[in-house]
């Protein structure tokens, strides 16, 4: 168990009557980059949100870094953890959203130092130094004192990546990080993600950027109707898909 960063077993999720996740099984090894593809509404976002317990699950188990995520098990039943403990678990997992969700009342630098200071209790100076490094790393050194609305979408998303990295996460989740961007801004965000992957970060990425998936991912997975239908190394996955649904989906995005 210690080898896997994420272990999801038979994860079930309902929204009222809607059965959104129907037994999702997925293992992500340390340092592995897994790309999740799938049609809109197939449950990709919901699954990512279950991994960091932004969404409760109705069945199955998710372990992150060897720890049961969001719950403790008592007599075979899941009992939800106290909020403080769940928050501690979440602090180890970075998440990047489709719509960036930067804090608009804070500058880029303030966005990045916010959680280290107020969640981890890092002192201001140290946090600011580290934040400046991270902003430089995503190519935004000179934008530290700028507010989000003064940044392009691509720049905002890179600040969001720096913000997540500031917590030194063991795992990064990306939910369609480039799909809200104008086409010419996609590249700069993918570059930052690729660099991160090369440094050995464990990443679960929901994206339809096939180029990125082929070059960077170790594994591609297809999600369909709330379950994982097919998975494999990107080369095989994209050139010789097995399942007709996968073929159909790939032909729709390629």
């Amino acid at each position: 168990m210690a080898a896997a960063m994420v272990e999801a077993r038979k994860v079930q999720k309902y929204f009222h009557n809607l059965h959104v996740l129907r037994g999702v099984d997925l293992d992500v090894k340390r340092g592995e980059v897994v790309v999740i593809l799938g049609a809109s509404g197939s449950g990709k976002t919901t699954f990512l949100r279950c991994i960091n317990h932004l969404e409760k699950i109705d069945g199955g188990r998710i372990w992150v870094n060897g720890h049961l995520m969001g719950y403790v098990e008592r007599n075979g039943h899941l009992v939800e953890q106290k909020e403080e403990l769940v928050s501690k678990q979440r602090a180890e997992i970075g998440m990047v959203f489709q719509r960036f969700n930067l804090f608009p009342h804070m500058t880029a630098l303030q966005n990045v130092v916010e959680a280290p200071i107020h969640v981890r209790g890092v002192d201001r100076k140290a946090a600011a130094t580290r934040a400046a490094e991270l902003l430089a790393k995503v190519g935004l050194a000179e934008k530290a004192d700028v507010y989000p609305h003064q940044l392009s979408g691509g720049q905002q998303q890179r600040v969001a990546i720096a913000r997540a990295l500031a917590m030194d996460p063991a795992l990064m989740l990306f939910d369609e990080p480039t799909s809200a961007l104008d086409p010419e801004l996609v590249g700069e965000v993918l570059r930052a993600m690729r660099q991160l992957a090369e440094e050995g970060m464990t990443m679960v990425v929901v994206t339809h950027e096939v180029g990125f998936a082929r070059d960077v991912a170790h594994r591609a997975v297809l999600m369909d109707a709330g379950a994982i239908l097919e998975e494999g190394p990107p080369d095989e996955f994209f050139t010789h898909p097995q399942h007709p649904r996968t073929k159909q989906f790939l032909s729709s995005i390629l």
């Binding site: 501690k88 602090a91 997992i93 998440m95 959203f97 969700n101 804090f103 916010e114 959680a115 997540a164």
Partner: peptide, 11 residues
């Protein structure tokens, strides 16, 4: 999304 992003950061 603001609350979500904050929670995802461990708040």
């Amino acid at each position: 999304g603001q609350m979500e992003a904050a929670k995802a950061l461990g708040m």
